[in-house]
Design a protein around this nucleic acid. Sequence first.
DNA 1: CGTCTATTTGAATGTACTCAAAAGCGGTGG
DNA 2: CCACCGCTTTTGAGTACATTCAAATAGACG
Lengths: 196, 196
Amino acid sequence: MRDETAIISYVNKFVKLSPPEAEALLSAFQKVVVKKRQSIIQPDFPAPYRYYVLEGAMRAYVAAENGQEHTISFAIEDWWITDYNSYLYQQPATMFVTALEDTIALRLSHVKEQELKAQNPKFETFFRIIAERGLAYQQRRIIINLTKTAEARYGDFLDKYPLLAQRVPQYTLASFLGMTTEYLSKLRKRMGSKKT
Amino acid sequence: MRDETAIISYVNKFVKLSPPEAEALLSAFQKVVVKKRQSIIQPDFPAPYRYYVLEGAMRAYVAAENGQEHTISFAIEDWWITDYNSYLYQQPATMFVTALEDTIALRLSHVKEQELKAQNPKFETFFRIIAERGLAYQQRRIIINLTKTAEARYGDFLDKYPLLAQRVPQYTLASFLGMTTEYLSKLRKRMGSKKT
DNA sequence: CGTCTATTTGAATGTACTCAAAAGCGGTGG
DNA sequence: CCACCGCTTTTGAGTACATTCAAATAGACG
């Protein structure tokens, strides 16, 4: 059972907060409980919040015309999730953000975030750091998507996120890795001989 | 002929700088001239700089074992470019950054960047904003790569960056869009009838 | 012009997708 | 506690989008 102070330790990894600063940070967030399969962000509606996951797991995905879903990101404990194009630019969302398990998250509104940054440069620094880390992470993902085959992308994911790979439904993983669920199933069968 | 004050106007779009602040910013940069085909970042070497392009065009790419190149990003006037995983984490690069044309750029070292941010929260804000914009942009790119066919990705690029599409070699564009140069050539032939 | 680089073309191939259906798994209510 | 229901994963056959390899053509630059 992690409580909301988890975010204090998390932020402290990047900028050192005094007790009053920690208090100011905490008071900007609201705890939300999201049941499995429930959406907190939907296309055409604004996404006024970003979410920090305390417990559980969520994913962000876009739905194509033909009913296909494409997973853009996952989030488990200590990860952030939102539709960044909607949140940052305050425009209607194009993605769903939905709970894969019963989830407890802390949400931060766009307005509160601006207040935090205006009130204390440490928060500005914090958000700069997580944006940069997100940027670097996404650049790695783009490289993988451009350079590796479906099988290599799957192997790569297993290496880097073995726990997550077991935790999320296989079809969401397939759609994250850019392949169909049927094909991932066949890959697993093929690879089964070599690896666990 | 754009001179280095272009970066002042650029930064001013995001945070308002007083004349002394503009001066402090400028003094952190160094002007560099890069000839066509010359690399400013190479794999296995650290990338201690990020570059702001004043004139010309560059691209960042990774080279695969089989000799294939995969373009990660382009940069023309007012765009930034570097190997972010190398620059941000101060680790050896995995990418090349190379001039597509004779280019004039302003480079900012990682050390100077830290000084700027420490010295004035406005610079912290500025780097936060461009990181967030980069994040949102890359998220859009990931969505396109996951959801669209090669033909649609090309059409999309033509719509959004018609000038850039004419300016860069076709094989770099193909490698940016995640297809072979031969296939892009065939696509263009096929699409030729409908458009332009 | 001649050379080097970039683009086009064609034929054969392969990786990954579509569609349809069966099997597996988990939860939930009777 | 078993039976059923919905959701997820697996399997198979046929197909398509995109690649590979090789060679010809077109452009750019000195």
